[in-house]
Amino acid sequence: MLKKYIYLLIIILFLVGVCIWEDLSVNIYLQQIDDAVAEIQALVADKDAINSYDILMTVENLEEMWMKNENNLCILVNHKDIEDIGMEIARLKSTIATNQIEDFNASLSLVRFFTETYHHVMGTSIQNLL
C-alpha cells in the first residue's frame, strides 16, 4: 500500500513538474522570439530597402533561434499550433531576397501575432477551460 502511495506521489510530482516546465519554457521561448522580432521591426522601421546584409543576418539568427526553440517546444505543445510561426519566419528570408518590404513587415507582424496568440491559448483561463 505504501509503495502505491509512493508511486502516486511520484506521479503528482511529475505532473506539477511538467506544468511548471511548460509554463516557464513556453513563456521564455516565445518571449525570445517576440523580442527578436521586435528588434528586427525597429531595425527596418526607418529603411526603404530590406535586402541588406545586416537584416539578412538578423533574420538568419532569428530562424536559427526559432529552430532551436521549436525543438524544445515540440516536446510540450502540439506541433501544428506552432508551425505557423516557423512558416512566417521562413518567409522573411524570401521577402528579403525580393526586397518586398510590405510582405516582410506583414510576416514580422504575423510572427508576433502568433506568439501572442499562443500565449493566450496555452494559459489557464475560463475560455480555455470551457
Partner: peptide, 21 residues
C-alpha cells in the same frame, strides 16, 4: 498522431490516475 507530443497523452493519463485515487 505525430504532431501531438507524447506528454499530451501521458499527462491526462496520470491525472486520471490521481483523480481515480
Amino acid at each position: 498522431e505525430m504532431s501531438v507530443p507524447l506528454l499530451h497523452g501521458i499527462v491526462p493519463l496520470f491525472t486520471l490516475v490521481i483523480a481515480h485515487y
